[in-house]
Nucleic acid binder design. Sequence first.
DNA 1: TCGCTAATGCAACCTTTGGTTGCGTATTAG
DNA 2: CTAATACGCAACCAAAGGTTGCATTAGCGA
Lengths: 110, 110
Amino acid sequence: MTTATDDELWSAIGDPTRRRLLDLLLESPARTATALSDRLPVTRQAVSKHLGVLDRVGLVEATEVGREKRYRVDQAQLERAAAQLQAAGEAWDARLRRIKKIAEAIERQP
Amino acid sequence: MTTATDDELWSAIGDPTRRRLLDLLLESPARTATALSDRLPVTRQAVSKHLGVLDRVGLVEATEVGREKRYRVDQAQLERAAAQLQAAGEAWDARLRRIKKIAEAIERQP
DNA sequence: TCGCTAATGCAACCTTTGGTTGCGTATTAG
DNA sequence: CTAATACGCAACCAAAGGTTGCATTAGCGA
């Protein structure tokens, strides 16, 4: 149920800082690494590395404007990621329910 | 939207090996660390450490039987985690939709 | 135009964490 | 009783998140 491609996306959005980065980019697009680092408890370089990761998996894209580099979220990709999160949650939920049923069935016949 | 407690659970289920571990424990409960490591590409010690993490956040619990220690999933806790996953996915989805609407509205008025 | 400031990128380094190997201890099987 | 098995602890390794320091380049005001 957890494929290799899954893991790539997971590790990308699995990091708290990267999640907050995506969050910030969603509420105000086209921000630069420096601007983003102002709103996070980490340095610009850390932010820059994270943006690099997000860029490599295609969750964000950047356009260079003069001396600054503005990032924005790739909506389609993030939608894919969000869908996978929901699916993962639902999958576990379903399995838990199945197991709970089995457990109850066993309890009913001593 | 992403609280501190969130992060604890995220980091617990954010690791691929831990996710597979939970998966294995769901399909056949009360397995030992050694048995679990047989079905994973890592050593018993690695599995043991992961089980320690999962135990600390309350996702699994262990009962000692003689020389072995059997682990099982805490259903209530995993349900909480699964719910958070779904919620996170839905939250991002909702924000994306909102932004998409705004973008379209802007495009319609030149 | 000149020089200063602001935004990036690159590199070295530290720390945490997932992972391994090796060893010692305890419990169970023969 | 002895041997095999399940576990825990400790040292060690590599990758990843994070920091500091420095070099580079683009914009802006005098």
